[in-house]
Simulated scan of single mutants.
Amino acid sequence: MNSASRLPTSKELIYYHIAEQGVVSKAELQDRFRIPSSTLTRTLEEMTADGLIRASGLGPSSGGRRPILYETDPGYGYFFGLEISRFHSSLGLFDVRMNPKSFTRWRMDEAMTPERLIAHAGHNIKAILYDHKIEPSQVRGIGIGAVGPLDRERGVILEPLYFAAPGWEDVPICRMAEEATGFRAQLENGANAALMGERWALRASNPQHLLYMHAGVGLRSAMMSNGRIVHGSIDMEGAVGQMIIQADGTRLQEGGNFGALEAYASIQALEKQARSLAKLGRGGWTDQLRLAPEQIRYEDLLQALREGHPSAVELFDSAAAYLGIGLANMINLFHPETVILGGSLIYSDERFYRAAIDAARQHVYYYPAYQPVFTKGELREDAVATGAALMMWRSMEI
């Protein structure tokens, strides 16, 4: 809600309940919150006058007068959600019902420094508001979901790895966004933001315990318990990639753990393995791709996979098996009811996704008595920006 340090007000509880349900009658609200009828009537009138909610018609009669139905007013305000990732970034505009009004996406190339990204986002924000005839005063804030590690309280991106452009260390991204746009900004790590977005999309089934794993350039994870994101004492969303799955194994980079999951199940790991094989003249990579070993990129491997190249199939199948082992370790620790998988590796090929979840099931304790639901989610590539905007929506003043 507005603050984690206090209990929500009755007005906030009512508003967010209406938002999650879509359309609600006064009788339903009274049954849920046990508020005196006169108090509830006054609260609903105030919220209607403030533009938070509006009457949306009449419900079916149960013998007397037909009840007034209430819904959130979509014109109360708008929110931007900005995703900052290693391969691409995206910007979305949402109304208070979290309906996407606009989405734009761009690649994070060698020129996309923090300053360039904020300037690009600011330009797009102005164009989006102009196209939708929305005044800047109607925008309630911009949420930012970014690759970690982060200092969420200060709104700073600390020392992320693998950005193509320089300058991504100790970036005061919230201050930069506020100065460029004039909107209040708030920072969350991308995995948490994605999980928030996906939980909102799944709200009809009301899952309470969820695990999110993003497999791309690196590995990121997030967890939700009793419907709330679990934050650690520090923000290190990429730490799941350092889970040791082979004690005498290799490591992906200097400073990383030997035998860490990211060394076997990430885009960088696939590229590194293919280049090593090509240098040894194994796997037919040089003949197949007609590239020097150091020129082999993930896109080349993905094309080889889709063409059924045996070495590519073996490479991706091995990575999927290792990812499944890492997933099983997380599942055995936290026992989620739903496991959401995202990221470029997951979306690359259905075979990879299936192999990963099959491997996870084989190592889940108490399977098949305990069977978490595996899914790619509802929002997929839009999950981070949606969750970032949702964070701002939940923190607005009511």
Rank of each mutant, 00 (worst) to 15 (best):
N2I: 05
I331L: 07
M243L: 13
L69G: 05
I35E: 03
V96G: 07
V339R: 00
L270Y: 01
L150I: 14
M396S: 07
T113S: 13
P293F: 09
A180S: 12
L219C: 01
V139R: 07
I53T: 00
R297H: 08
Y366G: 06
L379A: 09
Q288P: 14
F258S: 11
G308A: 02
M391S: 03
G216F: 06
H88Y: 13
D170P: 05
S233H: 08
L277S: 10
Q371L: 09
R152L: 11
P372G: 08
F87C: 08
P172C: 09
D248V: 02
G22R: 10
G57M: 12
D287K: 15
C174W: 02
S25F: 00
V156F: 08
E83D: 15
E350D: 14
N206H: 09
R97P: 04
G377V: 07
Q362F: 06
G22H: 04
D31E: 14
Q208L: 11
R394F: 10
A269D: 00
P100H: 10
L323W: 07
D349A: 10
S205Q: 12
K376G: 07
E381Y: 12
K272R: 13
D95Q: 08
F258E: 07
E307L: 06
Y367R: 09
W393A: 05
L52M: 15
I245L: 06
Y212R: 00
W200M: 06
Q242A: 11
V313L: 13
E262Y: 06
D235Y: 00
D382M: 10
Y70T: 04
V147I: 04
R220P: 01
G145H: 05
A319F: 04
I142G: 00
E307S: 06
P60Q: 13
M236V: 12
S225F: 14
K376D: 08
M392G: 00
L202F: 15
I296Y: 06
A320I: 05
W106S: 05
S5N: 14
R32Y: 03
R6M: 13
G167Q: 10
R32K: 11
L302K: 03
H123D: 05
I229Q: 00
E237G: 08
Y353P: 02
L323D: 01
Q21I: 09
T43S: 10
L270Q: 03
G143W: 04
D349M: 08
V230L: 15
S276Y: 09
I296N: 01
T286H: 00
Q268L: 15
A356C: 10
R290C: 10
L327M: 04
H214L: 10
G122C: 14
E46F: 08
S311G: 05
I296L: 06
N257L: 11
S10T: 15
S311N: 03
M108P: 15
E45V: 15
H335P: 06
R306H: 13
E178K: 06
T181H: 06
L7R: 15
L52F: 14
S205V: 15
G75N: 13
E254G: 02
W106I: 12
R6T: 14
I14H: 02
G256D: 04
H17Y: 08
I173R: 01
Q138L: 05
H363Q: 06
I144L: 12
L341T: 01
D287F: 04
G343D: 08
R361C: 04
K272T: 12
E135G: 10
S225M: 12
I144M: 01
E198I: 00
G64N: 02
E153H: 11
V384A: 05
A388W: 03
E314K: 13
A278G: 12
R86G: 08
F80C: 02
L58K: 09
P172H: 11
D317C: 05
